[in-house]
């Protein structure tokens, strides 16, 4: 049965709105930014004539729109980072207290990844999607998703190693070998 786009939008927000917001939050780290991104992505998705905008496709479009917005923002912030020292005094380096929550630390590292890598990590390890499902959601090939995941894990690993070398503290517990379950 054919449904109107408004019906699909209403259902998507009701059934997947929270999941989409959490996804955006995991990529941005800001509740407000996440809400704004989801809102914009929904408007973009349903403001464009599309065939067959059923629920799964609409959700995939919204996730892609969120990711694209994060990529755009990342580019802008990258530009800002390059000129920031000309405008503001350098901030005092934050020391990592011994009690720093490793989870928060890991999340900070995830958010410092390239946006596509971070999105693949979130979809794979938070949404528990398979590589193929991540590929379908983000409109990438499975091979590209594997590369993003592999690069992301490697970058996280390097980041953790560098941090461990700089800060004398016990190595985080890791499983042997089968780290990509």
């Amino acid at each position: 049965m054919a449904r109107t786009w408004d019906d699909v939008a209403t259902r998507l927000v009701a059934e997947r709105g929270d999941a989409l917001t959490r996804y955006a939050y995991l990529l941005t780290g800001s509740v407000d930014d996440a809400a704004d991104l989801v809102q914009d992505a929904l408007v973009r998705t349903f403001g464009t004539p599309r065939f067959q905008l059923d629920l799964p496709r609409a959700e995939a479009y919204v996730r892609r729109a969120i990711l694209n917005a994060v990529i755009d923002r990342s580019r802008r912030e990258g530009t800002w980072r390059r000129v920031r020292h000309l405008a503001v005094a350098p901030s005092v380096a934050q020391s990592e207290s011994a009690g720093t929550d490793e989870r928060l630390d890991l999340m900070r590292r995830v958010r410092s990844l390239a946006p596509r890598q971070a999105a693949c990590i979130v979809l794979r390890y938070y949404e528990d999607l398979t590589v193929d499902q991540v590929a379908a959601t983000l409109g990438l090939s499975s091979g590209a998703v594997k590369r993003y995941l592999s690069d992301a894990l490697r970058a996280l690993s390097s980041s953790i190693l560098a941090s461990d070398a700089a800060t004398p503290r016990p190595m985080p517990t890791r499983t042997e070998g089968d780290h990509v379950a």
Partner: peptide, 13 residues
């Protein structure tokens, strides 16, 4: 072997 544990990753997320 130095990659973050997927369980830790999932849990952190």
């Amino acid at each position: 072997p130095m990659s973050p544990d997927p369980h830790d990753l999932s849990e952190a997320l």
